[in-house]
Design a protein around this nucleic acid. Structure first.
Lengths: 200, 200
DNA sequence: GTCTATAAGTGGATAGAC
DNA sequence: GTCTATCCACTTATAGAC
């Protein structure tokens, strides 16, 4: 194959994007480096060469996704500050931001996949640490407190689960699926539907 | 190897138990039929022979776990009826029952793993259907309504996520991890700790 | 009912050319 | 910076003996 020759740093980003989609979709063990390569439009050995190993690649995807999530939450918080939102409405504001994150790319799913890898020494530790950072951010920086942060995370995990399960595929066919997805996503259901449909 | 010769039906159950543990721990793609075989104390080909394929085995594990979950919820509901518990306390009662389920075996984790397989045509459809059955059960039979059922599921997904992530491994080391696990599990934290420690 | 042996396929990683 | 060729380990599944 004849691929365009582009700077390593840029290619790196392309591969990370592709990997986030593939890993987010099929999980770590369920993905192959060849699937990532194809999604990025390059050869399989190049993927491995660029990152050293599949595991290192996954960890980079994970770190990047966690970073993007934290950045978005901080930006959202700053915006909430400007608008002088308090307690409850601040939480809601963050919730909307989270749904935007679901939309804007492949950040949420690789994170969720990482949460299922607690048994893996390296990835598991990384995932726990990232989860706790988000918890602290919600509890302290966002001022949601222990209860608010926990509730927020619970809602987030439900959204994540519905996403990985592709519950939105039943949105038109099953009224209960529709009701559940509607309830979990509030006014931003469309995002969920798009995210599910895009994945195929 | 010299394995005791026991009736097929009984062996089947042993394999299903072992498979629930292994799949629950490492996911579908991350598990091998040999790991299941070793956990069950038999040879790898025998596992495959008994169930036809790895995928069929996983689906049986999934169906069984979903059935056990529903059964437990129905029993719990009957008990709540006897005690004449209403709305909020009924929900709490079900929550405690769910934590018991986490304890009593390997039911919750394989279910959670299945929820991450939305992309798989067969398993994904099975997982969505099972999830919806539980939703209906909570909403209608338990009388939690749309909001109550959704909240319940959200809390459940948080517990599941903390479990697969093995957050309880940090229980003693990190006060935030402890706080989060405590909050998610209420009075039944011990169960979570045991479940996490057993898995290693 | 259960095993050993093994075929057939897949996937991560390395070597080396261009 | 990127590819082709290829090795080797692992995994599912089958065949057939006991």
């Amino acid at each position: 194959m004849k691929t365009e020759r582009i700077p390593a740093a840029e290619r790196r980003e392309q591969i990370l994007d592709a990997a986030a989609r593939v890993f987010g979709e099929r999980g770590y063990a369920g993905s192959t480096t060849d699937q990532v390569a194809q999604a990025a439009g390059i050869s399989q050995p190049y993927v491995v060469r660029m990152f050293g190993s599949k595991e290192k690649l996954f960890n980079e995807v994970l770190d990047r996704a966690a970073g993007q999530l934290e950045t978005l939450f901080r930006e959202t918080l700053a915006e909430a500050e400007r608008r002088k939102l308090s307690g409850a409405s601040r939480k809601e504001f963050l919730g909307l931001a989270y749904l935007d994150l679901v939309e804007q790319g492949h950040i949420v799913l690789p994170l969720m996949q990482a949460f299922l890898l607690g048994h893996d020494p390296a990835i598991g530790a990384n995932a726990r640490e990232g989860f706790l950072r988000v918890y602290r951010l919600l509890r302290d920086e966002a001022g949601l407190g222990v209860d608010g942060a926990t509730e927020f995370l619970a809602g987030g995990m439900l959204i994540n689960t519905l996403l990985t399960m592709r519950m939105a595929e039943l949105y038109d066919a099953d009224p209960d699926a529709r009701e559940l997805v509607d309830r979990a996503c509030g006014s931003k259901v469309e995002i969920m539907l798009d995210a599910t449909r895009a994945g195929r």
